[in-house]
């Protein structure tokens, strides 16, 4: 196995773990944690295959730096919303279904 394949595999596992956690966890901050783990997995999958050659492909590296900034922006917004939700309802999780409220 090569370095590239190994870290791509780690990325695949992290992505699956993170996506699972993002759905099953209820606490909003845990969901944010899980989504960030999943993002790290996806980022590894982007960059690691580019390390198959003698040097590492710079294009996915730049994409991942973009992705990291996007992820922190989205996380900050999610954390802020979670805080507001908690301030207003005293809860840190979303209710199960709120479809047909009057």
């Amino acid at each position: 196995m090569t370095l590239a394949t190994w870290y791509a595999l780690v990325g695949a596992l992290l992505a699956a773990l993170g996506l699972h956690g993002a759905v099953v966890r209820r606490h909003l901050l845990r969901k944010v944690l899980a989504l960030n783990l999943a993002a790290s997995g996806v980022f590894l999958l982007l960059v690691a295959p580019g390390a198959r050659g003698p040097t590492t492909d710079p294009v996915p590296q730049a994409m991942v730096i973009t992705g990291i900034v996007v992820a922190v922006s989205a996380s900050a917004l999610a954390i802020w919303l979670a805080r507001r939700l908690h301030a207003e309802t005293g809860r840190a999780a979303l209710p199960d279904a709120e479809d047909d409220r009057a």
Binding site: A16, G53, V59
Partner: peptide, 22 residues
């Protein structure tokens, strides 16, 4: 688990030669 499995399989089928834009 299915997603992870599919991803692992996909990674293992990647050709050894890089296809990037270096």
């Amino acid at each position: 688990a299915a997603t992870g499995g599919v991803l692992v399989a996909a990674v293992l089928t990647l050709p050894a030669a890089p296809a990037g834009l270096e």
